[in-house]
């Protein structure tokens, strides 16, 4: 717990359909298990439709916090998509912010139409690096594809957060709460995804 009193501000950002909400749910459940108050500010409703999505996950002791993190006050940003990570960092990061990024682009419509450009991912990550303290690249999609389900990339990324040591939650707690959040049918797959993420960031 650092900065701005007794709280941890995490932003999980991505594009509609990437499983942002599940990712924040896992983190929040783990935090509650560790006795924290948690508030998640989620923007969805149309999030399945290709728009930017971000979840503000706020851990606190003492009292609950509002659903939105103030500008410049994110401690950790987990980016499920590189451009979205940069977008969120511009508003919410500070020089001490730590980031974990899945470098696989999801192209916005205007890029597909040819009306706008998607900068090279290396450039995006380099610019991001100038804004924050740490950029950890975790190939979430590729790792998830490796276990047969690209859609599990969100859980890989949560795994990376769990293994990062940047939250006050023990890694084992993430592993143990997974069954509370994920249906039995796809639990084993997601457990593998979470572990891949943990291993990946520790390399």
């Amino acid at each position: 717990m650092k900065q701005n009193g007794d709280c941890l501000n995490v932003i999980i950002t991505g594009v509609g359909g990437q499983g942002n909400i599940l990712a924040s749910h896992i983190l929040a459940t783990a935090a509650i298990a560790e006795g924290f108050h948690v508030t998640i500010g989620e923007t969805y409703g149309q999030s399945q439709r290709g728009g930017s999505v971000m979840s503000h996950v706020r851990l606190s002791k003492g009292e609950s916090l509002g659903a939105l993190i103030p500008r410049g006050k994110a401690h950790v940003i987990v980016g499920l998509e590189p451009m979205e990570t940069l977008r969120v960092a511009a508003d919410y990061a500070n020089p001490g912010t730590k980031t974990i990024v899945n470098p696989r682009p999801n192209y916005p419509l205007m890029v597909l139409y040819g009306a706008q450009e998607y900068p090279p991912v290396e450039t995006l990550l380099a610019r991001l690096g100038e804004m924050v303290e740490v950029v950890k690249v975790v190939e979430g999609t590729e790792l998830a594809k490796g276990i047969g389900e690209a859609m599990a990339s969100n859980v890989v990324m949560v795994g990376a957060l769990a293994g990062s040591g940047w939250t006050p939650i023990p890694t084992d707690t993430f592993i143990s709460v997974l069954k509370e959040v994920i249906p039995q049918k796809i639990l084993a797959l997601n457990q593998r995804a979470l572990k891949l993420g943990i291993e990946s960031i520790r390399k």
Partner: peptide
């Protein structure tokens, strides 16, 4: 310079 608008679709 580095972000494209992400319109609903």
């Amino acid at each position: 310079e580095y972000t494209a608008s992400r319109d609903l679709a």
